[in-house]
């Protein structure tokens, strides 16, 4: 070791370059995306749906995994994004997919702020109940405002223009798929920056001990509200992607079931890690698709069994447990 004059090097650096891991993460997503495209060319609709739900689960991971707020209402932001993008196209004739996505992002962020204002007044179990109440209210609002949302018939008449005026949304879903992959990659890179930033560090502190954070002069609620807005924007992106790719928005997008499934996927993959959120979504949705086709009568039983197995034997989630295993092995070989 050389003794440098620069104060920065006195402490040395923590192990593991974060930039390299970012690049690896991007590469892994790109490889999976390419593999999906090559292996399942007839099933791009499913893959695109996985991408949009992955954005929802990433968003959920921000508040649940990184900040420790348990919620069963996160689809409210996904649905808000989906309806915003859909309504822009169906009612206002704004068909540019990028503008529709932007609409979804804004709607998700606004819904995030609104829910934060209500949810952050409580903690623990009452907070969880508030999240459930909110998702029911959002659902009912969408149901009642049927002239805007199509109510239980769903919102149709969404007709996105070609991306950049060049790539038309085709019947096979090629464009939608690549559009989704691009959105997920952008979201992933931005979120990697956020979770590593001073703000991300502040949120990790809040998760462990909000009182300690207050004693450092920071307001946990202000930080959590900010995270809710970011999370809402990410989930809204997923919703917009879903509206653009399927060209319909159903009430399911705003449902308790969708929220709960997102939480299941997150726990399955592992909370508090972006890779965990992505892995959980991929595994759950592929498993669901495969098992429901193979055995339509008992598929839910199998999903339940898988979840119990993971929670009991790999409580950090599939990705979390694998990552911990390799870290330990890496340290043992050092």
């Amino acid at each position: 070791m050389t003794l440098a004059v620069n104060t920065q090097t006195i402490l040395g650096r923590p192990r593991g370059g974060s930039f390299r891991r970012d690049l690896m993460g991007v590469a892994v997503i790109a490889v999976f995306a390419a593999a999906g495209y090559i292996l399942f060319p007839d099933n791009l609709a499913l893959l695109t749906r996985i991408l949009s739900v992955a954005l929802l689960v990433l968003a959920l991971d921000l508040v649940t995994g990184y900040c420790g707020v348990a919620t069963l209402g996160h689809a409210a932001f996904f649905g808000s994004g989906a309806y915003a993008a859909g309504i822009l196209s169906a009612h206002y004739g704004i068909n540019d997919p990028l503008l529709m996505t932007l609409g979804g992002i804004v709607a998700g962020a606004v819904a995030g702020l609104l829910c934060a204002v209500i949810m952050l007044r409580a903690h623990g179990l009452p907070q969880l109940v508030l999240s459930i109440a909110l998702i029911y209210l959002f659902h009912e609002l969408a149901n009642k405002a049927s002239s805007w949302t199509g109510g239980s018939d769903g919102l149709s008449g969404i007709m996105p223009d070609p991306v950049f005026g060049l790539y038309e949304f085709d019947l096979f879903g090629h464009t939608a798929y690549f559009f989704g992959v691009a959105l997920l990659l952008i979201a992933f890179v931005l979120l990697r920056l956020v979770v590593r930033s001073p703000f991300g560090m502040l949120c990790r502190g809040i998760k462990e001990d909000p009182l300690r954070i207050r004693a450092m002069g920071a307001s946990p609620n202000a930080a959590l509200a900010k995270m809710y807005v970011i999370s809402g924007a990410v989930a809204g992106t997923g919703g917009a992607l879903s509206a653009i790719s399927t060209q319909v928005v159903a009430l399911d997008a705003l449902s308790f079931t969708q929220s709960a499934e997102a939480l299941v996927m997150l726990v399955l993959g592992g909370t508090g890690s972006l890779f965990g959120a992505l892995a959980g979504t991929l595994i759950f949705m592929l498993f669901e698709d495969y098992v429901s086709a193979a055995n339509p009568f008992h598929w839910l039983t199998m999903v339940g069994a898988l979840l119990i197995a993971v929670v009991l034997f790999a409580p950090k989630g599939i990705y979390g447990t694998a990552a911990a295993y390799f870290t330990r092995r890496g340290e043992a070989n050092r």
Partner: peptide, 12 residues
């Protein structure tokens, strides 16, 4: 502490 990018490890 609310900054959304960068890392304090890179702030001399």
């Amino acid at each position: 502490a609310g900054r959304l990018f960068g890392s304090f490890l890179n702030m001399p």
